[in-house]
Write a protein that binds this DNA or RNA. Structure first.
Lengths: 211, 211
DNA sequence: TTATATACAAACACGCATGTATGTAAATAG
DNA sequence: CTATTTACATACATGCGTGTTTGTATATAA
């Protein structure tokens, strides 16, 4: 065999992750063997065990590749320069809407992200060594709600929405709406019920709040 | 061995389902063997294979026991006598709120339901012979949205909510909200973030719509 | 240039879960 | 009262997935 350079090794590592994603999405995590993943990637189980300690580790790596960048984008979309820029295309409410739209857009355009979400939502079990991922998800949700609340606070200050409810309440409701939408969007593989009208649903949700 | 009567046999069948639920919730569906379930139920795999063709069949039976009654309750809560009874405690909006509250209540009070939901949401993979369950869930959602829409139509007629949006739009938004809430409620095993304030969240969601 | 670490492939050992086939005692049908 | 079916327990056959170990050719460091 031909020993690989560091770059080539990193390439196989990525290749294994990609192969895993495609087999996972097809057969589910627990019913795919590392042998199958290796074959799909054009390597042997030796390579898989070299780059990852086990299947769970591989799954973690797969998830991180998609989730971590998404969290970064979130800050940009919801918080950065929230107080500056008084022009109407940058008001807090529109930014919230754009954040939601943008996330759906990523799922639409980026197959890697879409497949990973599908796996995490419907093709894996949060059990044993994977149970703490649940905690990560929950704390992630908390930070989303926090950021939404900050945006809604600005929206209240600028009197874009009715003061009937608090920013926290608006934020919670929006988060639950979006959480539901993501689940439905991912599960709606035909695209008939949710994927095709996600933009409309989001716009409606925000519009409901506008004065 | 002592041959059982029909009643006793039905009892062991139920016993197996209960055992399965408790082991599933603990170790996840794919990592629990039928041997383990049998042991937990105080029988052997022979009994399990007698009552169910395989693990998937058992999982289906478990799900049906919880989901089917829930669908029945839904009709009662949202549709029955929707046009009669003009008293304010039975207005369409309150009925929607009560339906949501009632569903959460069932999860709270009924361990069997709670565990089953936890399994279906975070401890099983929708793959292979279980993929059609996904379709069932989706079509179920459709009928929920339909019923919500009917209730919201009445609410619009009675001018309880603002005519800014259509009944269908309100229904979709409420369904996504509730879908998100259910997911979060189930995942929030500590109860800190969602379980403790579910009632408030629901009330807020409905209140937002009130004129 | 040589020694060592790297990046895997190949081989080994092991248990465990599944499905089926057979055995069996008592309930039930007739 | 007898025959048959029921409701399982037990035993058997089989395969598959995992983790580890060993082998090896080459990149890389010195």
């Amino acid at each position: 065999m031909v020993r690989k350079t560091k770059q080539e090794a990193e390439q196989t590592r990525q290749c294994i992750i990609n192969a895993a994603r495609e087999v996972f999405v097809d057969k589910g995590v627990s019913k795919t063997s590392l042998e199958e993943i290796a074959r799909h990637a054009g390597v042997t189980r030796g390579a898989v065990y070299w780059h990852f300690t086990n299947k769970s580790d591989l799954l973690h790596a797969m998830r991180d590749q998609v989730i971590l960048p998404l969290i970064d984008r979130m800050d940009d979309a919801l918080l950065v320069n929230l107080d500056k820029e008084q022009n109407p295309h940058n008001d807090p409410l529109t930014r919230i809407e754009n954040f939601l739209l943008c996330t759906i857009q990523v799922l639409n355009d980026h197959q890697e992200t879409r497949q990973t979400y599908e796996i995490m939502m419907t093709k894996c079990e949060y059990v044993g060594e994977f149970e703490n991922v649940m905690q990560q998800i929950m704390s992630n949700c908390s930070s989303i709600v926090d950021k939404l609340e900050q945006a809604y606070t600005k929206a209240l200050e600028k009197q874009l929405i009715k003061p009937k409810l608090t920013a926290a309440q608006y934020a919670q409701d929006t988060h639950l709406f979006f959480s539901g939408l993501l689940h439905m969007w991912v599960k709606d593989t035909d695209g008939i019920r949710y994927r095709n009208q996600a933009q409309t649903l989001i716009h409606t949700h925000i519009e409901m709040r506008r004065k």
